[in-house]
Design a protein around this nucleic acid. Structure first.
Lengths: 147, 147
DNA sequence: TTACATGCAAATAGTTTGCCGCCAA
DNA sequence: TTGGCGGCAAACTATTTGCATGTAA
């Protein structure tokens, strides 16, 4: 476990405490899983992984906890064409996603310097721009190797 | 009705005929609506508008027709955090979306020249990149005026 | 004429909610 | 001790499907 991950976990716990939310074993397990993966999992995927360690965990609790974290601004919901909502618990910095259309894995893309088009777009359209989302679709190296 | 819109409609009709699909009044009405708007509507939104002119139209038919057009590669499904799937019937050229977080309107952004990061990203990650999606979120001019 | 499309209703799938017993603080 | 939390099941919402009837070609 690296320090950055530890810090992120501590931040999440602190945010919950600020709101007088209890740190239950289920919530802790969910938080740990979120900060230890760079994938962006769906509620069902999170539940499947959690239930291995906490057989009594329920899907409803997963949804409730994710909703709570969303309200705290600590996770972002992203919808994909697979019909499921996925959750992004990385730092709320704008970043780009890589989505494998074969195994449906969703990860963050490495940073590439590029001009920020926000101001230009705002000037052209009159929109007051507050956020953005960039996704690239393709086949991940693992899937390419197994085809 | 401008020529470009007309052409798009003719293209869609021709594609359907190629597949020996019938041009029913319901399908024609849906196609006309799709090519006459630059918004990206959900199935429910499309149904609401259609039913004004075709009171007998059903939501199931809207879904079936959209699915057909998707198979033909003439519309693209895009999921947003409102939980609904929206449909993009514009030409299948990669483009950027502008999404108003207030009225939930989704339109195409004007083209802005920018470096294509696809190759760089492919080289860095090993992904074979096949597509992309860029969305900007914000408040549209109409909503700003009414706030 | 006839295979395909429509439209209703039922089925499915993801997500949310109500409620009661339980446990973190 | 106690109010928030967990877990079950029911409710909800978006989407898909089955089937009998209707209709485009």
């Amino acid at each position: 476990m690296d320090t950055e991950t530890d810090n992120r976990l501590e931040t999440l716990i602190a945010k919950l405490r600020e709101r007088d939310c209890r740190i239950t074993p289920q919530r802790l397990a969910l938080l740990e899983m979120l900060v230890h993966t760079d994938e962006h999992l769906s509620a069902a995927q999170i539940y499947e992984r959690l239930v291995k360690r906490f057989p009594t965990t329920s899907l409803a609790t997963v949804y409730k906890t994710l909703s709570l974290l969303k309200d705290l601004g600590e996770v972002t919901e992203i919808s994909f064409s697979d019909g499921d909502t996925h959750y992004d618990a990385s730092n709320p910095t704008p970043h780009t996603h890589l989505i494998c259309t074969h195994c449906h894995r969703i990860t963050d893309a490495p940073y590439i310097a590029a001009p920020d088009l926000t101001e230009e777009l705002a000037a052209l359209t009159g929109y007051k721009i507050t956020g953005r989302r960039f996704d690239f679709y393709g086949i991940c190296p693992d899937c390419q190797a197994n085809m």
